[in-house]
Amino acid sequence: MEEKSAKTDWEPRIVGFVCNWCTYAGADLAGTSRLKYPPNVRLIRLPCTGAIDPLFIVKAFQSGADAVLVSGCHPNDCHYTSGNYHARRKLTVFKDLLEFTGLDPKRFWMSWISASEGQKFASFMEEIVTETKKLGPLKGYNN
């Protein structure tokens, strides 16, 4: 019973690693267009998804993130030409490893969201928060 009431107060923490040129701009657009999305998401802006080291993701989980998102420019649109293609390969494999070691697949998300897709950003954040709420707090990373 106690656990249940704890769950109702609990708000998930989501960390989003986003590239400066597309998804960060998309999030900005969502904000300036006054689209509603949950405040649980903390964005960390990087120059490009190609600069995202899987260590960042582990660190986010260790530091209390309940789910992590990586998001950048659509294929062909990366500001640095191919950063997103490299990120896609690396994170495809790393996601497999996270799942193999017991992370629920719904705790790691990746998307392509452009500067003009404020709506996509807002609804995707909504979805991630809803899914994470179903899972409850992440265990097994930060103790």
Partner: peptide, 30 residues
């Protein structure tokens, strides 16, 4: 599974995580 690559076979092929193909799978990406 994803990149059809097995290590330790061919010196002339780049290791899979140092390269990419535009048509790489991305089923999990939204």
């Amino acid at each position: 599974e994803h990149f059809n690559y097995v290590p330790g076979k061919d010196i002339d092929v780049p290791p899979p995580l140092s390269t990419f193909k535009k048509e790489d799978p991305q089923d999990f990406i939204r």
